[in-house]
């Protein structure tokens, strides 16, 4: 019960931060990019790399390309795609995410995700909120992403 309340509060806070971020965004910075449902999977003990998931939507009229996703809380960030043929899985590096006007792209478990490696501090725990930066062309968008054990 209290865990649920807490997670709702965190989510609400993430939303507020996100809304604030969108309002404060200068014209031209990832214009039209909307992010919903962002979350980071809590890393199990002994591990530091995490996967960040989110839904990206281009509500603008021009195509967008997200060249990178990083976080000040991690030394390294990469766009990855888990590719599987049923049994064999591979992690493929993705150079950029192309998002035509009006389109939605899902970063979800078992598919596209942002892999964040080498945390600069203690590994994140469920309930934390981490800053994550999406880089599109010359601009970037900073969002706050909740860490949780399971998909929200």
């Amino acid at each position: 019960m209290s865990a649920r309340l807490l997670s709702t509060r965190w989510r609400a806070r993430a939303w507020l931060t996100l809304a604030g971020g969108l309002l404060a965004m200068p014209a031209g910075a990832c214009e039209g990019l909307e992010i919903t449902g962002a979350w980071i999977r809590e890393p199990p003990p002994g591990t530091g790399a995490v996967a960040a998931y989110m839904r990206l939507h281009n509500a603008g009229t021009r195509p967008l390309a997200i060249e990178a996703i990083s976080s000040p809380a991690f030394a390294m960030g990469m766009l990855h795609e888990t590719v599987s043929d049923g049994d064999r899985v591979q992690m493929k590096h993705v150079a950029s995410l192309r998002l035509p006007a009006g389109k939605t792209l899902e970063l979800a478990p078992g598919g596209l995700h942002a892999m964040l490696m080498r945390p600069t501090g203690a590994p994140p725990r469920a309930g934390d909120t981490l800053p994550v930066e999406l880089h599109c062309a010359d601009h970037s968008l900073l969002i706050q992403v909740p860490v949780s054990r399971n998909p929200p």
Binding site: P44, T47, T82, S84, V89, P109, N150
Partner: peptide
């Protein structure tokens, strides 16, 4: 393997 942030924790969950 543990340095596997997407599939492995997902499958164990």
């Amino acid at each position: 393997f543990t340095h596997c942030p997407d599939v492995c924790p997902g499958t164990l969950a």
